[in-house]
Design a protein around this nucleic acid. Sequence first.
RNA 1: GCUUCCUUAGCUCAGCCGGUUAGAGCAUCUGACUGUUAAUCAGAGGGUCCCUGGUUCGAGCCCAGGAGGGAGCGCCA
Length: 467
Amino acid sequence: MSVRRSSVQELLRSQELEREVVVKGWVRTRRGNKYVQFIAVNDGSGFNSIQVVANAEQFPEEQLKADGVENGAAVAVRGQLVASQGKGQTVEIQATEITVLGKADPTEYPLQKKGHSLEFLREIAHLRPRTNTFGAVLRIRHAMAFAVHQFFNDQGFFYVHTPIITGSDAEGAGQMFRVTTLPEQNPPLTEDKSAVDYKQDFFGKQTNLTVSGQLEGEIAALALGKVYTFGPTFRAENSNTARHLAEFWMIEPEVAFNDLQDNMDLAEDFLRYLVRYALENCQDDLKFLNEQYDKELLGRLQFVVDNDFQRLNYTEAVGILKSAKQKFEFPVDWGTDLQSEHERYLVEKHFKKPVILINYPKDIKAFYMKLNDDNQTVRAMDVLFPGIGEIIGGSEREESLEKLTKRMAEMNVPEHELWWYLELRKYGTAPHSGFGLGFERLVLFVTGMANIRDVIPFPRFPKSAEF
RNA sequence: GCUUCCUUAGCUCAGCCGGUUAGAGCAUCUGACUGUUAAUCAGAGGGUCCCUGGUUCGAGCCCAGGAGGGAGCGCCA
């Protein structure tokens, strides 16, 4: 009779002992002596591995080695699930059959039992998911993605899919990657030969990869009420920092009839929900990251769950920064955007908690943000987190057709490309608000990792698209 | 894109003021050990000192250029 394969996590939690089980996974370590061998097997189902005990009478060490039961090999193990005789684990498998499914030559296999830098692991992105660190990060990443959908679903939001390929380059959120099927050599030119003729391209116009689903999200919000997007997003800036990727995932809720206050409440509830979800559902993985990388991680996550975010106006923030004793590399002036060092001072030194800054000067924010009555500021909202900086950027949107077209003219945003966006203000316009959350920045915060390239399986950044 | 630091064994790193044959821990291999927890102990093998050129009696070390990587900044989520 064949026994169905169990996951390692299932067996580690099992109360049902003295039964035959089968596990399949990868060998993390093999150790022991000429009488008994211990093989830690991990199948990725959770942080912990299960200990397989192999007695020498049946499994001499030389035989195990010759068969390839070594660090990194894929194995299938059949045996009895029993209470552990040793300390450090409650159950273990007394092996009766060990089959090597795929060898990993120990003299060549790059992952060893000790000491790998994150930089080295980045160069072997095809193998790094097998490490404790990346297993933990990827499981937490999954949990966060799941929690995003759960949060919005529970609150009556609808998940909308906004396009990956977009036809407008007027979104103003940065440099874009071009999408074309025109030949690289001698593309068709316009009649006066002054430019490439995109009328002959696949879509009949110039197209790019999306930098934001917001404008399309607004369409959906003004029909379905509460919506969110969660999809890949592309920025072609030559940006080289530990907080930027050329391809990342962004979550953008958009809610009809929400004002800026509602928007702040939503952002705060959302972030706190996600962090609490991680604390409750990713304990083993977070404990490891806390011990290995960042001793203050768990404390910091708990702090976010327990405390309200500090909310204040941009103008007030400028006042605080101007009277700060700390010297800044860049001067603080009303009307200029805050630098990273200013944001960090507010979050990490002054308030020592997450900060929501609102009502920024209109000249440093996007055209679609709602103008305040002072005619100087817009209803923008940035959520600033310790170590991360801006984790969320959002706003109440300008719902007045007249004011919106005026802002677009001032900022040289061509109306004809966004005719559909303007019609939303022409037909049944309504107040509405939304924001964008960079998913990897969330994962960065929750895992305590230092570099955003280590919280996405296959990072894309300038000069790097291997794997 | 700017600034700055780094590149020495499979991995992590030391290498003095420029001076004989370049070292350690881990990994690998050989042996020891009856329950280990990144097992331990003894021994062995393992090097294009990132590349190219230069200075020098002599370069891992100094100089120039190139490549790769990190950090900070800018841009942003």
